[in-house]
Structure formats: C-alpha cells, structure tokens
C-alpha cells in the first residue's frame, strides 16, 4: 500500500513532464482570450514601457535642449481588466522638467465600460478630452513636438486633470459620442499655459464619425468652461479625414482650431496636419502651425516636414524639420526621435 501511494505520488509529480499534443477540435473548449495567455495565467496586468528619445538641433541658441540627446519621456503602462466590464489603466511618466527628471502619474483611471444604454464612466487622472490631439499620449502622435497651439494654451505636456467623464454612445446610425467631464486641472501648473486654467474645468466633447469616400470623416466639437465669476472658456473644432489605400497605406488630413478666453485674454490658434503612409514602414507628414502667443502679443507660425519609419506598432524612428517664425526671429529646428516600445501597449479607440 505504501509503495502504491509513493508510486502514485511520483506519477502525479511526473505528469507535467509528459509530452502534450497540440490542441485538437475536441480538446479545446473555450477560445483563448484576446490578449496574453501567459499574463492571464499569472493574473498580471499588461505591462509596457515606451521611451521617447530625442535629439534637437536648433538655430535658437537659447533653446534648453539644443544639441543634446535627451530622454524626453519614459512611460510605464499597467493595464488590466478588473471586472468583466471594468478596466484599469495606469500610465506613469518620467520626463525632464526644469533640469530634473520628474516622475508623475500621467494618467491613472478606472473605466466602467458598460453602465447600460450606451453609457460609460471614467474616473481618475486623464489627459483632458478637449480636441483630438490633447487626449493622445505624445508617443502616439505623428510628430516629435507638441503642436504650438496646445503648448501655448495648455503646456508642453498638454492639459491633464483629475476628474470624471460620463460618455454616451448615441443609438444612431452614425457614430456619435458625447463626453461630459469635470476636472481639477493638474497640468499645466500655475504660471504655465493660459491664465485661469489651474482650477476646476468642465468640458464637453461631441465626436461624430462616418464613412466617407472609401475613408472615414470625423468631426469633433469641444467646449471647456472654468469655475468662478469670469471663467475660462475654450472652444475647439477638429476634423479628420483618413483613408487606407492598399495593404498598408494610410492618408490622413487633420485640422484642429481652438479659441480661448479669460477675463480680457482672448487667443486662438490652429494646426493643419497631412500625412501619407507610402509603405508599411515609411510615412511622410507635413504640419502647419499658427498660434497666438499667450505670454505676449504676436503669433508663432511653423512649418514642419516629418518622415517616420515604423519598426513596430510602438517603435518609430522619426526625423522632423521645422521652420518656426516668432516675434523674436525665425528658427530652424531638426529633431531625431526614437520611440521604443516594449510589451503589450493599448489605448482606447481614438
């Protein structure tokens, strides 16, 4: 009896070492989950790292990052389902700020994706859903810098806040999505961006998208209003047309305009972006910027030519030339950007 138990024990221990045949139709009962069998087994969130390495050559000798290789940003993402319809997403960013490397929670939010009847709710820290590009993480954009209008009105890192967003997918034949949010602004800090932003901000965005001429046409209307007697008001209009010719091609045309006001402050700005993906790996783009300066009178105008080579979905080698015209004079700038991504990295539909 004792040797039988010992034999049985050894057999149980040896079971995992026996060769296992590939799955057959009869053996598999449930399909594998959409992402990451191994992560599922360990119950770990999806962990990824995105680095944004930049070298800026500039004719403007006052530019801080001039002729230096700098790790512009390092983003660590932890993403996972918490419950069948609830997701958690955390993005921690390390970036240079006033000569020091600073770590901050760029985004950290929980998404209740199905409250029923097309409603969903997101709570936490998030890039504010104002316009098309501000909600995008910098590594996800088609260029190395921030559009001038976003830098002027918000900050170098955009507009980020703590708050909640109620979203509604309208039951219409055309994709129509409405976001209503309330925020306590985290970025920009006081003294950055337009005056009056560092307080409570309520935002709304209507996003409509429809197939158009073998492509997709999207239009967005954004509105933000601060608290108090003379609140900040920002209005935004954006439109994007995309089409996907061939096996890998993509053409994109995007324009975004902002009008901002606060007390006697009134500024506006826009950019126009056009991009064409020639092959699976190479994309060329052109961006025209026009933004009224926040800190002084006058305008900043820029023309950028961009070439990107996509190594993978999250790894890109990019070259960007920019001619920038400011009241103080004109600058020529050239970026070499390397974005490197490790691990499974996902963003919601953009």
């Amino acid at each position: 009896m004792r040797s039988f138990i010992v034999g049985l024990f050894i057999l149980i221990l040896a079971l995992p070492l026996l060769p296992v045949e590939e799955g057959t139709y009869e053996e598999e009962i449930t399909p594998p989950p959409p992402r990451g069998e191994l992560l599922r087994a360990l119950q770990l969130p999806e962990i990824s790292v995105i680095g944004d390495l930049q070298t800026l050559f500039s004719s403007n000798k006052e530019e801080e990052d001039r002729n230096k290789v700098s790790l512009e940003e390092l983003e660590i993402a932890l993403q996972s389902w918490i419950y069948p319809t609830i997701r958690g997403d955390v993005f921690i960013a390390f970036h240079e700020h006033k000569g020091h490397t600073q770590a901050e929670v760029e985004e950290g939010y929980v998404s209740f994706l199905n409250l029923g009847k097309g409603f969903s709710l997101i709570g936490g820290r998030k890039r504010v859903g104002l316009g098309k590009e501000n909600p995008l993480h910098p590594h996800h954009r088609l260029y190395a810098d921030n559009p001038l209008v976003l830098t002027e009105l918000f900050s170098e890192h955009g507009l980020i806040g703590d708050g909640a967003t109620l979203s509604y997918l309208l039951p219409s034949k055309i994709f129509t999505y409405l976001d209503l949010s309330t925020w306590q602004v985290v970025t920009p800090e006081k003294g950055e961006g337009m005056p009056g932003l560092e307080k409570t901000l309520h935002t709304a965005r209507l996003w409509v998208s429809t197939p158009y001429k073998e492509g997709e046409l999207e239009v967005g209307l954004s509105f933000a209003r601060g608290a108090g007697k003379e609140p900040v008001k920002i209005r935004g209009l954006d439109w994007t047309f995309r089409r996907w010719p061939g096996a890998f091609g993509r053409d994109l045309l995007r324009m975004e305009l902002f009008w901002a006001e606060h007390e006697d402050f009134k500024k506006k700005g826009w950019y126009l972006l056009g991009a064409h993906k020639f092959t699976r790996y190479w994309e060329g783009a052109l961006r025209i910027d026009n933004a009224e300066l926040v800190a002084e009178e006058g305008k900043e105008k820029a023309l950028s030519l961009i070439a990107s080579k996509y190594l993978t979905e999250t790894s890109v080698l990019r070259f960007q030339y920019q001619y920038c015209d400011r009241p103080q004079g004109a600058d020529n700038r050239f970026w070499v950007q390397v974005i490197f991504g490790m691990g499974p990295h996902a963003h919601p539909l953009e």
Partner: peptide
C-alpha cells in the same frame, strides 16, 4: 480584403455595427 489583416486601423464608424 485588400488590407493585410495584421494591420487594420480601428475606425469609429465600425463601432456602430458592433454595437
């Protein structure tokens, strides 16, 4: 069918069919 199925860019209008 002309598109390599590995590289399809999700677009918002497709959400309407899925909904």
């Amino acid at each position: 069918g002309e598109r390599d199925p590995h590289y399809v860019e999700p677009r918002p209008s497709l959400v309407v069919s899925l909904r």
